[in-house]
């Protein structure tokens, strides 16, 4: 088995127009900037992106927004310092937004990867974000029924990878990357170091079974 690919372009080649894509990262940490640039180059449009933020300045997801490639963003915190392209598209009504509480976003992604059909969370109960959703009261406490969030592709950023697709991460660049790896039909990781040697099993954070291709992209933003 060898999941290594020679370059970013071949890694994003399978992505088609209208795909639902999870993109790891929080702020500027753990974002697969190399894969996003390659996706931009590749040209797919009408995409739905699931990610915590909606990009800042003209980097990462903001570039995809600037070039009009996205139809919808699912995220917890689209409004960050410098999120000008999201704000511009949103104000112009050019982008659909689904705001999900961050823990619910992580858990919906986790549920998809773990084969869970839905779950009850107290988060958002009684608020606007629970409107129209099934609710239940258990032992006097209100819960909202949330559904799994699947994707066609996940774009991930990791520190180390091996040819089996095993990954580990650096510091707070881990964030959404491990849960997203499990939830997409096809997960693509850019890694800072791609090794011929297997990663020590004790140091694997994302087992390779969740990862479909790995490509080296040494630059750390």
């Amino acid at each position: 088995m060898d999941k290594r690919l020679p370059d970013l372009a071949s890694a994003v080649a399978p992505i088609t127009d209208g795909s639902v894509i999870m993109i790891g990262g929080f702020g500027s940490s753990g974002i697969p900037f190399g894969l996003i640039d390659a996706l931009l180059e590749q040209g797919a449009r009408g995409l739905t992106v699931i990610s915590n933020n909606a990009g800042a300045q003209e980097t990462g997801i903001a570039k995809l927004l600037k070039e009009g490639r996205l139809a919808k963003v699912v995220c917890s915190y689209p409004r960050s310092p410098g999120s000008i392209w999201f704000e511009r598209r949103y104000e112009a009504g050019e982008i659909e937004l689904e705001v999900v509480p961050q823990g619910t976003l992580a858990e919906r992604i986790r549920a998809a990867g773990a084969g869970i059909g839905g779950f009850l969370t107290p988060t958002g109960y009684g608020t606007l974000l629970a409107e129209g959703k099934e609710t239940r009261v258990i032992d006097g406490r209100g819960y909202v029924m949330e559904s799994p969030l699947h994707a066609d592709f996940a774009l991930l950023r990791a520190e180390n990878g091996d040819k089996w697709g095993n990954l580990n991460y650096h510091a707070t660049a881990r964030n959404f990357n491990p849960v997203m790896a499990c939830a997409a039909r096809h997960s693509i990781a850019e890694v800072r170091h791609l090794s011929d040697e297997p990663i020590d099993p004790e140091r694997v954070v994302t087992p390779g079974i969740f990862v479909h291709s790995v490509v080296e992209y040494g630059v750390r933003p």
Binding site: S76, Y77, P78, R79, S80, F86, E87, Y90, E91, L97, V99, V100, P101, Q102, G103, T104, T121, P122, T123, G124, Y125, T127, L128, L129
Partner: peptide, 21 residues
């Protein structure tokens, strides 16, 4: 997390999870 201004995008982050947990 949100105002009454519809042109101002809402942003909830982790706040709703914190207040319940």
């Amino acid at each position: 997390w949100a105002t009454l201004d519809n042109t101002f995008p809402p942003a909830v982050g982790g706040a709703m999870d914190l207040v319940v947990g």
